[in-house]
């Protein structure tokens, strides 16, 4: 199935919860691998993922990448790139949350790959994932202040008595 067909199927199953389709221009590859659907209601992302995984026609068996983006306009996004290794099709989903209430339901129960990726998104971007089994920082230490990949992040002057800037 092409990803527009999958989008239509999602739209018929979830209706208003699925937002508009952002088609990427510039070549067949970009159209196929990078066009994404918005999920307007953030709390439905887990249900959408479960549907994509368990629907026999779709059978999305693996999560390729979960990435967080700071949009620069006080919103953060989480992009899910999903792939079906058996059916060889592909779709990307995107949810957008405000910075001051960055909470997204966890999809660790759907694909176990999401576990560390969600921890990384929390560490780097400060997005909390609801019902995640182990919501700790993964790359930085627990006493680190701030989330480095936010656009307004400033390097600390000192960390544990060590000077950080050059």
């Amino acid at each position: 199935m092409t990803n527009t067909e999958i989008y239509d199927k999602l739209k018929s199953a979830f209706g208003e919860k699925i937002g508009e389709w952002h088609e990427q221009t510039g070549g067949e590859y970009m159209k196929r691998m990078s066009s994404y659907a918005d999920i307007t209601d953030t709390s439905y992302i887990r249900d959408v993922c479960l549907y994509l995984r368990d629907e026999p026609e779709l059978e999305f068996d693996s999560l390729l990448l979960l990435s967080s983006v700071d949009n620069g306009d006080k919103t953060l996004s989480v992009t899910y790139h999903l792939e079906s290794k058996s059916k060889k099709h592909f779709i990307a989903l995107k949810v957008t949350v405000p910075v001051d209430n960055a909470v997204v339901p966890s999809i660790t129960g759907v694909w176990s790959h999401a576990n560390w990726q969600e921890r990384e998104a929390w560490d780097m971007m400060g997005i909390k994932f609801l019902n995640h089994p182990d919501m700790r920082r993964i790359l930085l230490d627990e006493d680190w202040i701030g989330h480095p990949l936010r656009k307004d992040y400033k390097q600390p002057e000192f960390y544990r008595g060590m000077k950080v800037p050059y």
Binding site: M33, S34, L64, H81
Partner: peptide, 19 residues
């Protein structure tokens, strides 16, 4: 131009993707 891409290659360790 403005846009986004997920592109991937097979390295010695597996699927290396760039978003």
């Amino acid at each position: 131009g403005a846009g986004e891409i997920y592109s991937r290659v097979e390295t010695a360790r597996g699927e290396l993707g760039y978003y």
